[in-house]
Simulated assay, not measured.
Amino acid sequence: MPGRKYFASLMVCLSLFMVSCQGDDKPPLPRYISTYQNSSDSPAIASRRPERRYFIEFRSRYALTYGHSYVIFGQLGANGQAITREVAGLAPATNDPLPYVLGHFIPVPAETGESDGDLEEEYRSASWRVVLTRAEYEKVVAHIRMLKAKSKVWLASVSNCNAFVADIARSMGYKAPSIYLRPQQFITKLRELNGG
């Protein structure tokens, strides 16, 4: 019976997903800054150069559940601080816990912008900032906009926040870790895989 096989497969996938998200998060990790594609400039020098005044920051934050991963991107000022910033991530399109729970079994409507806690420093658990030129930045932002437009559902086992961030990282030529890691572990491993 096709319905039973589908249900059994869904349960196996869900079990694997839930097992992979077990464990505790560490205290907040240091903030790391790199230049795109392993440029020869040090990040401190690169962020002061006029052609490197843009950034994308891969982030994770604590939450009541296993956390959340997302990106922040924008323009840097002369002091290396963000003067503009925008958030992109994938999450259920509500603060109601019911769609979140259902999203572990069936696709639920998603949002792709800022969610509660994304910009609050006390919730940041890991981050990796990559300093970009204008051309690099425009290419990444075009991909993020396309990804936001097509990401309509959240499903914990397939289309989760880590999968969204991994898609962005791969569009930049980076290797992406398993989407089944906890967000803090995911962002840390993303940085480590790519020499950040």
Rank of each mutant, 00 (worst) to 15 (best):
S9F: 06
C13W: 00
H143F: 14
E121R: 12
L155D: 01
S42L: 09
K150V: 14
E120I: 12
Y174Q: 12
F7K: 11
P50E: 12
H68M: 07
P97E: 09
Y62S: 15
M172Y: 06
A78Q: 14
D24S: 13
L14Q: 10
L16M: 15
Y66N: 11
S39A: 13
G113T: 09
R49H: 13
Y174C: 09
D118S: 07
V153H: 09
E136T: 08
V19S: 09
G89D: 02
V130L: 10
K152Q: 10
P50H: 08
S42R: 10
C21N: 13
R134K: 13
Q75F: 04
T65N: 15
D116E: 13
K148I: 05
G113H: 11
I56F: 06
Y62N: 02
V12Y: 10
H104F: 11
S42H: 03
R191T: 04
A88P: 06
S40Y: 10
H143W: 08
R124T: 12
Y100K: 08
K5H: 06
T133C: 06
V158F: 12
V141E: 08
T84P: 03
D167K: 04
C21F: 14
E114D: 07
S115L: 03
N162T: 10
L119D: 11
E51R: 09
Q185Y: 07
F73T: 05
F73M: 12
A156H: 06
Q75N: 04
Y123P: 02
A169R: 05
L10S: 15
D96T: 05
R191D: 11
K189F: 08
F17S: 14
Y54E: 06
K148P: 04
A91V: 02
A91I: 02
P109M: 03
F105E: 07
L10Y: 10
V131D: 11
L16W: 10
E192K: 12
L16Y: 12
